[in-house]
Design a protein around this nucleic acid. Structure first.
Lengths: 236, 236
DNA sequence: CAGTGGTCTAGACCACTGA
DNA sequence: CAGTGGTCTAGACCACTGA
């Protein structure tokens, strides 16, 4: 057998929980009992239980014991891959067309802009992502030049600024807002859809540590783009 | 100090990575060096490094050492809370109106239905979620009666079937598809919006272990509902 | 083949908290 | 106040793999 013992213990208990044999609220055997069952040291049992606790399958309470967790928030993993990669993986041709590029001071009447800029200026980038020469997404992006000074000298022709940022200044925190909105005149023109057409709107802010990196707003052609989110307790 | 030592080591290294002091690809001190620095046992260092490895901040390789990970997939946590809870938390009145309830065999021409039903029948539930008496979401749901037989006898008047399921048959795997779609006639009538209005569409399948639980399709009034997704490396 | 991480032992002391 | 989990020690043997 090449599965570590702590892993085997973890799986045994996980299986019992998922099968319903151990129901939410049920008490697990105490560590010393598991040590006896598996004939192992306490650290080994502890490693297995800690792993289950960290994925939220059990709750551990001192003096009381370990219990199967009651179901809680259902958060799940949302993949928002690099648009360029995603289009290429679909076997389509990717192109980014730059519409506007401008360095400016933050608009202090917009709280988000001031926070993003810090003490520096902002780079405003507007463009359209094409898949097989059909517009897929209209994107307006603000980049903090105090966080990413290299970006000011960068030629943006042809390359997706989002892909460049991902590669050079990976974020550590992000927040997304996802909504369905009707296309206004600007969006409709750039995406080549009718005014009022349903668009998927994604607004994303990213940070690296405490520094804001970018704020991006993307309108996707509703009929051409979906987001997929998956969740599994098998994730670590 | 009441922070465990392994936690302090983890944070020290995490801070060095996030600040850029340790760049992607950089080699970390070997375990014995960290033992010396913190004057502790190897298990303690190992616990700190394992935690960093499990959140993907470092890669550990035998014989070679531990290295700051290069940035990878950007997956993030998407919260789709119980709609009832969410509306109540906004300080609005929640109501669910049941439109249709029907037990039937799966439509075998639809791959998803047959897989969901297993050997049993399906419960079809249609209804509308109201916030302050304004329609927010039109929901069509299929529930596998072989996985959740209790649901057949359940009165569904007034209570959200999603909330009931969450409480009684929590899922372990889920998949969501999120899109923007125009309201068709049925959706427009139930949500009290114009035909063609932008709606946020969420299709979710959930499983408990290997058994399909439910397949739900929800249309939200675009102007009234957003999804929020957050990501932070601070998550465990 | 030597250095690294992965696992494991058999203890120990402690903080916490419910009976 | 006794039982539980949280942490930690000072070792050990091993698998892996790059120099």
């Amino acid at each position: 057998m090449r599965m570590p013992l702590h892993e085997r213990i973890r799986r045994d208990i996980e299986a019992a929980i998922l099968s319903g044999e151990l129901k939410p609220g049920a008490r697990l055997p105490v560590e010393h009992e598991l040590m006896r069952q598996y004939a192992c040291a306490r650290m080994t049992v502890s490693k297995a239980l800690s792993a289950l606790s960290s994925v939220g399958l059990i709750d551990r309470r001192k003096r009381a014991g370990s219990f199967v967790a009651r179901p809680k928030v259902h958060s799940m993993v949302l993949d928002i891959p690099d648009l360029e990669q995603e289009i290429l993986q679909r076997g389509q041709i990717y192109r980014y067309r730059l519409l506007r590029r401008q360095v400016r001071l933050p608009d202090h009447s917009t709280a988000g802009e001031a926070a993003l800029a810090g003490r520096g200026q902002l780079l405003l980038i507007e463009g359209v992502h094409f898949a097989d020469e059909r517009p897929l997404s209209f994107e307006t992006r603000l980049v903090s030049l105090s966080a990413v000074p290299e970006m000011e000298a960068l030629s943006l022709e042809g390359a997706s600024p989002g892909a460049w940022l991902l590669k050079h200044v990976p974020w550590t925190e992000a927040e997304n807002r996802i909504a369905a909105v009707p296309a206004d005149q600007t969006v409709a023109r750039h995406l080549n859809v009718g005014t009022g057409a349903a668009c998927l709107f994604v607004e994303r802010r990213t940070w690296r540590g405490n520094d804001g990196i970018t704020l991006v707003r993307q309108h996707f052609v509703g009929s051409a783009y979906d987001l997929i989110a998956r969740f599994g307790s098998s994730k670590l």
